[in-house]
Design a protein around this nucleic acid. Sequence first.
DNA 1: GAGGGGGAGTATATCGATAAACCCCGTGGC
DNA 2: GCCACGGGGTTTATCGATATACTCCCCCTC
Lengths: 340, 340
Amino acid sequence: MPVTMSDVARAAGVSAMTVSNVLTGRKRVGEETRRRVLTAVDELGYELNLTARHLRAGRTDTIALVVPGFHHPYFGELAARIARRLEVSGRHLVVEHGGASREGELEALSLARLHLYDGVLLSVVGMTHDDVAHLRTAVPVVLLGEQQMPQRYDHVRMDNVEGARLATAHLLATGSRRVAVVGGSPRDANRGMPGMRTLGWEIAHRDAGVPIDPALVPPSGTDGPADGREAVRRLVREKVAFDGVLALTDTLATGVLAGLAEAGLRVPDDVQVIGFDNLDASEFLVPPLSTVDPGHDVMIDHALRLLDRLIERRDGDDVTPEHITGPVSLVLRGTTRAAG
Amino acid sequence: MPVTMSDVARAAGVSAMTVSNVLTGRKRVGEETRRRVLTAVDELGYELNLTARHLRAGRTDTIALVVPGFHHPYFGELAARIARRLEVSGRHLVVEHGGASREGELEALSLARLHLYDGVLLSVVGMTHDDVAHLRTAVPVVLLGEQQMPQRYDHVRMDNVEGARLATAHLLATGSRRVAVVGGSPRDANRGMPGMRTLGWEIAHRDAGVPIDPALVPPSGTDGPADGREAVRRLVREKVAFDGVLALTDTLATGVLAGLAEAGLRVPDDVQVIGFDNLDASEFLVPPLSTVDPGHDVMIDHALRLLDRLIERRDGDDVTPEHITGPVSLVLRGTTRAAG
DNA sequence: GAGGGGGAGTATATCGATAAACCCCGTGGC
DNA sequence: GCCACGGGGTTTATCGATATACTCCCCCTC
């Protein structure tokens, strides 16, 4: 039922190939013919079938970003930046979700989906080393995110340890002595994002010669603001003294600020707070959130360079995977005191 | 170079069709053969080519949500909900961006992309009636969003006028007399989201017998919190008296709260504030934001029902488009005073 | 006048999976 | 002893666009 290229060809009295040539501009076509074809396209309401083109041509000019969930503002902002970057090379970004299924593995179907794209930026947040190890695919893939992952993939991440260290060091330098880590988990020190950021927190303490109290790492989820608020409530309830908070994400920090307000604690006078990710909205919290900027643009530059390298690889070439850690920087606003 | 179904077939000593049957489970296959095929699949690392399947079968079991930009948290949250809903029917959601190009039209290529999906939920925010009118496509499309759009499409939206009316009525009922509209635009009263919500604001005033001052609708963008903050700064700078704010989105409201804090105005004592959209984060602002809940789940139910109706339509069937307005409700939190 | 070049267009094979039709052989009914 | 039946496979055509090789034909050059 849908109009195909041959239908257009027939209507214009030419061959399908000529229609294709007119539409893609790959070969010269006579002006008169060209006009006839375009008229036919218009009259029949012809729409190119990208699926067929993809099957034949092998490329889609589309890159996928696979995120753990659509609702994380962090990934929305990342996606927006990537999309802008891709546009200049005439390519398109789509966002897919569901790296890990409920069984914790990439299901077969989800894996096959990757073939729909020229390349894939795979956020490995929430996946384990094994999840990704099983992911054998011919599709160009660059990993984004913090977990420890198989060496054979290109992998771009931000400097989590350094970011958390910088942030914590600033809290300590501006007078905090008991800095809680919200979202932290001392267990998986070199695996996930929480582990790495918690590590940075520890290092800052060691550097400053300030002792660490395990009670300052309340058990907590890392999903949304509710987890941050709950962590603060718990600290207050259990009467753990604290005068600073390193929130492992800005999303958690949002909840932390809510929790502190609820408890009647003033920010930054009673408690300093610093987040991580520098979300768009963070600047507009009350008070404006101090945070760690993840240096998205640098990460994206690297990730796309590595991806293009894979996409353009000829069959012989053997590229050795790169593992890149991008720089982070401190953004100081109203939830921390000025350095003395 | 990639492994195809025929490669697997050869390795397993069967026909390609049998491999297909094993993998899809569409036809009975002998246990012994089945095992041989699966072994071959494993050994060769075969991955199904969904593009080819799509071309042949005509379906992808994939729905696209087209959003105006990836970074709006509103759409992230919407997408997450839609994705969850689709999963139960074994389908997949991808998020695409870029309805309107910089020329303000859907370009041909972008249009062709729609064919990659079984159906499309198209957010028309930021598009004009004409943009969509030119969009002639055979792909099942349901429109989401506020603008006035061609009748021939199914269209689901929330009750913007009523939401804004409810919100404003509450501000007036709790003592505010000069309610500013941030993000509002009195001009396009029945076109875009800002127009409709501004209309609701007007109606509430009329109902309450409170006069309207055009100075209370400061010129403003609606993109991000910065616009909200700027609007407040402007009101303060130009010494427009106000004791309430209807922010047309929660994102704007975030900026409004920042602007009020900056100006030393207390919320809700000096100024009451109410937003629109009920974002996840809004509950955690300081003070927690009162807002209008857009009733996502109801909208999604309708949208998917309409979309499925189009997808399953046989060639003869002629379905008349539906235009649905979902209910909204007030969520009262800390930025407004309790009703007297 | 023969040969060469190149612009314009066509015919055919192909990308990989699958629907539909068909084939083969053992079994059971009458 | 013949036929219908059906489980388990295979063969072939097809989805729509496009790379490749090829055909014409006109014009220029030596």
